[in-house]
Nucleic acid binder design. Structure first.
Lengths: 238, 238
DNA sequence: CTCCCTCTCGTACAGCGTTCGAGCCGATTC
DNA sequence: GAATCGGCTCGAACGCTGTACGAGAGGGAG
């Protein structure tokens, strides 16, 4: 994987795609397509350059002509999924608040569709065309609210950090529940939960009560609660 | 060095003079110690079972007697660093709000000391003794505020999700700035930033203005802003 | 003494990301 | 037509990873 050296990183976006000759050869587009398919199916661990090659009916290392790194490939994949994030126009949506809320929901939905993005957010500066488009639109929404200068950056960071944190915790928790019922999960804690019972009875009670009905509806409510809290806090500061 | 091959008569010279029993054998404690040292020094990529073994003056695979997996080792490491997180008592700190704020700051500080935790949060259910201790204390703080049932869970999730998201984005951004000045970083974007200049001038302006002075002080202010926003929002709902 | 349990570690295996260089093929140039 | 070139593919190899396995050392117990 990437070696975090001290040199200035050269990003995919700074280098033009190699000019293509015909159709039947591979290009960045289909490579990213195939990578996305593997990522969505089996997560980050499901994407290896060899598997990607065979999926493309190509040699294992042919991809390296079109993409320098696996890291670069992941950058491309990240920007691709960012194209799914929509930011409502503040004027049409009826103010900055619906616009920002719509963005937050859209971003969360995207992360839930592509849980592998969680690990990758911020692993590199996201400056791809779609990421910049989203950022630009969100910033204009916040400017509609009256934020400027540092407060503008602070407000944006607050929303995006929360959404990534919340959607991330949902996604990774979902990954561990796949094919396991809540009862089984509680049962698998077995003696350990019983020890918590003894040492921290109120916590154990809470765990049982909350985990027992942690379905999609509750998660939806959880996110809505957090988002509204956060927007209320922003409202008083604009 | 003589290598003992086959069934050569066992001579003093063919074998090291004392088969190394200097340490009372390794235990989980020192294994986690060494793992933490590697993780803090070189991040997640810096921890390999072989490096860990040599660091412990042990064979590469000796660790597997004490720990089943690398995953388990990381779970132990995660719980160890959770011991650094402190939750002020609500009564002593002067209310739920200072208590929760203190917890948030302590968690963020821990993540900044151990940036490799970012990827690991939520990658497995955190039910180690220290994690449960922290969760218990935080829940009692929120109960002091009057939260119960679902709102209790929602409030807790809001804070922890935000802190992890914010500290995570800080940590990963810091990892990419290591040894690179902001000027170099902006310069490395080169023509690409100029394209953003052309297509999204307000965004480019914002990027230059914000990235230019993204020092620790600004990050501190950013976190404080978000945290206060969020606590304000919680205040109206308790 | 032998037996057994705890613990160490060399070896091996499959898989990873990536480099290198050989080679194919269509287009251009002589 | 022949030679050359550049875009592109790909097999082989390198060094690394996590982990399974089994041989064996050390010390206590019978």
């Amino acid at each position: 994987m990437a070696a975090p050296t001290g040199k200035a990183p050269s990003s995919v976006w700074t280098r033009p795609e190699r000019p293509r000759r015909e159709q039947p050869t591979l290009g960045r587009e289909q490579i990213v397509d195939a990578a996305l398919a593997l990522l969505d199916a089996d997560g980050l661990a499901g994407l290896s350059m060899r598997r990607l090659g065979t999926r493309l009916n190509a040699g294992a290392t042919s991809v390296y002509w079109h993409v320098a790194n696996k890291d670069e490939l992941l950058e491309l994949a990240m920007d691709r999924v960012m194209s799914e994030v929509a930011v409502p126009d503040a004027a049409e949506a009826g103010g900055w608040r619906p616009a920002v809320a719509g963005y937050a929901r859209s971003l969360r939905a995207m992360i839930r569709r592509h849980p592998w993005t969680v690990t990758l957010f911020g692993s590199r500066p996201m400056i791809g065309p779609n990421a910049t488009r989203v950022m630009d639109e969100v910033l204009t929404a916040f400017r509609h609210a009256g934020f400027t200068g540092h407060d503008l950056e602070y407000a944006w960071a607050l929303v995006v950090d929360y959404v990534i944190g919340a959607a991330g915790s949902e996604a990774s928790r979902a990954a561990h529940q796949r094919g396991v019922t809540t009862d089984e999960r509680i049962a698998s804690m077995g003696t350990y939960l019983r020890r918590i019972d003894a040492e921290r009875p109120r916590l154990a009670e809470h765990i049982r009560a909350v985990w027992a009905k942690e379905d999609d509806q509750v998660l939806e409510g959880r996110f809505a609660f957090g988002l509204e809290c956060l927007l209320d806090g922003l409202e008083t500061r604009r």
